[in-house]
Design a binder for these strands. Structure first.
Length: 417
DNA sequence: GCGTATCTAAACACTG
DNA sequence: TCAGTGTTTAGATACG
C-alpha cells in the first residue's frame, strides 16, 4: 500500500498541476497566468474542479479550505488521482494512435507532414505507478486478446479489483464473467458514453447482455427498427469486440432475437426488420431489478468484497472514480443513448442506492460508484494465445502494435471506422 | 441444491 | 448448392 501511494504522494505534494506536466494534453490551464494568485487548475467558476466534486466554493480561500479538507492526501484522493492518470494515459494513447494514423495517411498521400511522428512509446503514467508488474509475469495463454490500444474502460473503478489493481488486472484471463442486465445495474449513461471510444477500439467485451445491446441498436435507428444485418453492423461498429468471432456472437444475436419476446420481427417492404416491444422489455425489469433489499445489499457488497484486498484504496476507487470521467469528452450521442436506455433499466435500483451509499461526491451516481462493470474476457484461440496481451499489458506496450491487425472471422464491416 | 438468466454451440428449416 | 435468416434445443456458467 505504501509502495503504491508513494509516487502518488509525490504527485499530490506537487499539486495536481503535475498531471498536466506529465501529459501531452496541451498547455497547462495556468499557463500565462501564473501570477494570478487565485487561479488554480482545480478551481474555476466558483466550483471545485476536482474530478467528481464540483463543490461550490464562493471564493478562492474557501476553495483552498475545501481542497485541503475534502481532497487531502488520503486513500480516496490518491485513488482518484490514479484514475485521473488512467484517463490521461488513455487520451495519450489515443492521441498517439491518431497521430500515427495521420502520419500514415499523409505518407500514403505523399504529403509532407509538419506533425512530429508519434512517439513509439507513449507516456505510461499508470504503469509506472500501479501497473508495475511486467507483462512477462502473466502467462500469455491466460491473457485476453486485446490488441488495440486502450488500457481499461474509462469507468474502471466501478469494480474495484477488476480494473485498477495490479493483481486484478492480471487476472482477466479466460475467466468467464457474467454480465447480465441484473448485475449491470450501475452502468450509467456517462459510464457508457465515456467508454465508447474504449469499446470501439478495445476488443473488450461490453458489459451488457446481447438483449440490451440489440435493443439499443434498434432504438438508435431512426425508425426504431433494424434488419438483422443492420444489427450486426451496429455491433461491429460500436464494439471492437464484435469484430471478431463473428459466427459466435451473430449466432447469439439471432438466438436472442428469437428467444426474447421483446424483439418483434416485422415484415416490411424491404424484408424482415426487428423492433423492440418496450412493454415486453419492461416486463423483464421487475424481475431483474426489483429494487429489493437483496439487490441493494448486493450492490453494497460490491464494495465490501474489494476492501480487504487493498484496503481503503480499493474502496475509494470504487466509491469515487466514476464521476471523474463525467467531464471526459469522449462520449457521443450514440452510446450515450445506449446508456440512457440502460439507465431506464436501472431506475429502480438507483433510488435505493442513493440512500444507501454515503455520497461525499456531489454529482456522483451512487450506482456507478457501488457496482462493478464486468468485463468479460474470452478464452483465446490457440493461434491467438500468443498475440497481444491484456488490458494491462497493453498499457505497457506501444499502442500501435496492432494497427495492422485484421479481424479474423470476417472482413471489417463496410461502415466501420 | 435449486431456479433463473445468460451465453455458447449446434442442428435444422426456410428462402432467395 | 450456398449463404443468410430464423427457430429451437442443450449444456455450461453465474448468481441469488
Amino acid at each position: 500500500m505504501r509502495l503504491l501511494l508513494c509516487p502518488l504522494q509525490d504527485l499530490l505534494n506537487n499539486e495536481p498541476t503535475c498531471l498536466y506536466q506529465r501529459t501531452a494534453l496541451g498547455p497547462h490551464p495556468q499557463e500565462g497566468k501564473e501570477e494570478h494568485p487565485h487561479s488554480h487548475p482545480l478551481y474555476g467558476h466558483g466550483v471545485c474542479k476536482w474530478p467528481g466534486c464540483e463543490a461550490v466554493c464562493e471564493d478562492f480561500p474557501s476553495f483552498l479550505k475545501h481542497l485541503n479538507s475534502e481532497h487531502a492526501l488520503d486513500d480516496r484522493s490518491t485513488a482518484q488521482c490514479r484514475v485521473q492518470m488512467q484517463v490521461v494515459q488513455q487520451l495519450e494513447l489515443q492521441l498517439a494512435k491518431d497521430k500515427e494514423r495521420l502520419q500514415a495517411m499523409m505518407t500514403h498521400l505523399h504529403v509532407k507532414s509538419t506533425e512530429p511522428k508519434a512517439a513509439p512509446q507513449p507516456l505510461n503514467l499508470v504503469s509506472s505507478v500501479t501497473l508495475s508488474k511486467s507483462a512477462s509475469e502473466a502467462s500469455p495463454q491466460s491473457l485476453p486478446h486485446t490488441p488495440t490500444t486502450p488500457t481499461a474502460p474509462i469507468t474502471p473503478a466501478t469494480q474495484g479489483p477488476s480494473v485498477i489493481t495490479t493483481t486484478s488486472m492480471h487476472t482477466v484471463g479466460p475467466i468467464r464473467r457474467r454480465y447480465s442486465d441484473k448485475y449491470n445495474v450501475p452502468i450509467s449513461s456517462a459510464d457508457i458514453a465515456q467508454n465508447q471510444e474504449f469499446y470501439k477500439n478495445a476488443e473488450v467485451r461490453p458489459p451488457f447482455t446481447y438483449a440490451s445491446l440489440i435493443r439499443q441498436a434498434i432504438l438508435e435507428s431512426p425508425e426504431k427498427q433494424l434488419t438483422l444485418n443492420e444489427i450486426y453492423n451496429w455491433f461491429t461498429r460500436m464494439f471492437a469486440y464484435f469484430r471478431r468471432n463473428a459466427a459466435t456472437w451473430k449466432n447469439a444475436v439471432r438466438h436472442n432475437l428469437s428467444l426474447h419476446k421483446c424483439f418483434v420481427r416485422v415484415e416490411n417492404v424491404k424484408g424482415a426488420v426487428w423492433t423492440v416491444d418496450e412493454v415486453e422489455f419492461q416486463k423483464r425489469r421487475p424481475q431483474k431489478i426489483s429494487g429489493n433489499p437483496s439487490l441493494i445489499k448486493n450492490m453494497q457488497s460490491g464494495h465490501a468484497y474489494c476492501t480487504p484486498l487493498n484496503a481503503a484504496l480499493q474502496a475509494s476507487m470504487a466509491e469515487s472514480s466514476i464521476p471523474l470521467y463525467t467531464t471526459a469528452s469522449m462520449g457521443t450521442p450514440t452510446l450515450g443513448s445506449l446508456a440512457s436506455a440502460m439507465r431506464e433499466e436501472l431506475n429502480g435500483a438507483v433510488e435505493h442506492t442513493n440512500s444507501t451509499e454515503s455520497d461525499s461526491s456531489p454529482g456522483r451516481s451512487p450506482v456507478q460508484a457501488v457496482h462493478p462493470v464486468h468485463v468479460k474476457e474470452e478464452p483465446l484461440d490457440p493461434e491467438e494465445a500468443e498475440g497481444p496481451l491484456s488490458l494491462v499489458t497493453t498499457a505497457n506496450h506501444s499502442p500501435d502494435f496492432d494497427h495492422d491487425r485484421d479481424y479474423e472471422d470476417e472482413p471489417v464491416n463496410e461502415d466501420m471506422e
